[in-house]
Design a protein around this nucleic acid. Sequence first.
DNA 1: TATTGTTATACTCTATAACTATA
DNA 2: TATAGTTATAGAGTATAACAATA
Lengths: 169, 169
Amino acid sequence: MRIETIDGTGFASGETPGALPADQARALGELEQILGFHISLAEVAIKAHFQKNYGDALGLTQKQIAVLWLVDSCPGIIQVDLARLLRVQRATISAVVNILTARGLMSRAGPGAEDARHVPLELTDEGRRVLASSKRGIERHENWVKQHLTVAEQKAVISLMSKLYRDSD
Amino acid sequence: MRIETIDGTGFASGETPGALPADQARALGELEQILGFHISLAEVAIKAHFQKNYGDALGLTQKQIAVLWLVDSCPGIIQVDLARLLRVQRATISAVVNILTARGLMSRAGPGAEDARHVPLELTDEGRRVLASSKRGIERHENWVKQHLTVAEQKAVISLMSKLYRDSD
DNA sequence: TATTGTTATACTCTATAACTATA
DNA sequence: TATAGTTATAGAGTATAACAATA
């Protein structure tokens, strides 16, 4: 079975006639009802669009920018709190911080004063400069993401996604 | 800085980790308005929950199950169509198919009759067995995903995500 | 020339496990 | 004992680039 593209321009124009969106839905079958499947498709599409149009130029991924952004918003934040905010393991954050510090965008400011187990994070000047540039890329990218959504729909996306990850523990 | 609660009591000092919603929004700052950020958090949370509760037992990821599922729905489907449905590169699909065929769940059924460039895919008997088992896991997992959503909200998630990835080319 | 599949390569993201240091 | 951070390891997922076979 061939699958037609959304706009029907992609391939095999003579081989498998049929209504285009309906054809895709038919191909998906029961998968059409799986929320996680659609969320994953959206995430993949958004990530790919960002990386292609902005990420390569900036040399940063969305995830790395998010970490820069959070450290800028919360100077001195420690890694276990980043892990909670992003819902990943401590070791995962450590890896991202390793990348960002290796690039000179962030610094681990030694043991914390109150609790020597804490390692407060700070952006470097270069990190702040790169973050500002990244935010402009994110802004344009977000305009692309939201291009076919009303304002109400944009709010709905945030509200619904928040409900999905809020109790994820 | 530690992520503190509104009243300043904080969740530090090893007592109750987990930022309160209002506090979390404050930590996120402008990130709160980025749709892609929330979608990514939801995707990570859902993927982690699946892998922990079902994926390890099944020995399959959500993505691998999706490919099995699509091949089962569309016997003889070729890889370029899988790539279009999942919005990834041909080489990416080839890698996933390599994993699934190595595990004996899927077979590349030689060159196609109409077009020798095509390599139609089929599930093996074992693949069908494993898929059936996986679908039961996915069903339970989806119930967890949807646990705090009304039926209308569930439909809204599908509708909104579809709008986000529909024109991703 | 265009399409399909494949391999090689590289990188991010993520987890688990084990370890150190600190509380 | 519990918490924070780190490293080592492993694997999935993804992309790009280059190639061969076919149309």
